[in-house]
């Protein structure tokens, strides 16, 4: 039986967060969705509460997505991460695979978000 999960959206674009949030909300209305504007905020929030899933944008000012994930990994080793990125080059995907991260290509569409959710629920 599915339990209620907590998911954090890390993206410097508010619109992106809104879009991601609305799609996830439609699929899992019971999930708690936390938003972080950048990497620092994400790490701070992750210290305060347990998060199950992370949707992280790659290209962000300050700390970029991979680093954010690395840092949070040490805080919440059980969490699952999805890297949501406009940088859809193969090299990025390869790096993500190595780190055991699911790489999802932007743009944010129902299709791309459902890919992410499938991974989280797997």
């Amino acid at each position: 039986m599915e339990t209620s999960k907590t998911l954090m959206i890390v993206d410097d674009s508010k619109v992106a967060r809104m879009m991601t949030k609305s799609i996830i909300h439609n699929a899992h209305p019971d999930w708690l969705i936390v938003e972080a504007n950048d990497g620092y905020e994400a790490i701070e929030l992750a210290k305060k509460q347990a998060i199950d899933y992370f949707s992280v944008d790659l290209n962000m000012p300050g700390i970029e997505g991979f680093e954010v994930i690395e840092k949070i990994c040490t805080l919440s080793p059980k969490a699952k991460f999805a890297l949501l990125t406009a940088n859809i080059q193969q090299s990025t995907h390869d790096k993500a695979t190595k780190m055991n991260i699911k790489c999802i290509n932007k743009p944010i569409t129902e299709q791309s978000i459902s890919q992410m959710l499938e991974y989280f629920n797997d």
Partner: peptide
């Protein structure tokens, strides 16, 4: 307004990302 701006930034982010992918390939 800030949201509109944010939206446009995200659009261009995606565009540039797509462009980089095409060039890279």
């Amino acid at each position: 307004d800030p949201l509109e701006e944010d939206f446009l930034i995200e659009i261009f982010n995606l565009g540039i990302g797509q462009a980089a992918a095409s060039l890279s390939m």
